[in-house]
């Protein structure tokens, strides 16, 4: 299994995103760095639109993730409801 990761700028917009990722991916590990928050996970990481919406109280388009995204690693699969990063090996 390889590690996938995703990193965001540390700010108010990303706090609920990071929270929901950690809630939806119990195996994920948080790594906080200056101005940046990185989430590492073995195998795969799923970001769910609904979980973010629950936390921000409005509708959320997963493409909004890109505004504060810093980097990621893994193969991406994106549809309206979830954004998945995975190494399939």
């Amino acid at each position: 299994m390889s590690t996938v990761f995703i990193a965001f700028q540390t700010n108010e917009d990303t706090r609920p995103i990071v929270e929901s990722i950690l809630a939806d991916n119990p195996h994920a590990v948080l790594d906080e760095q200056p101005a940046m928050v990185k989430i590492n996970a073995e195998g795969q990481l799923v970001i769910k639109r609904e979980s973010i919406e629950e936390r921000i109280g409005r509708s959320f388009d997963l493409q909004e993730l890109q505004i504060n995204l810093i980097t990621l690693s893994g193969n991406i699969d994106e549809d309206d409801d979830q954004f998945t990063l995975a190494w399939k090996n």
Partner: peptide, 15 residues
């Protein structure tokens, strides 16, 4: 970091 937010798209394009 603002440039990096585009980089995620670019990395994926390369892959």
């Amino acid at each position: 970091f603002s440039a990096q937010s585009d980089e995620a798209r670019h990395m994926t394009l390369g892959l």
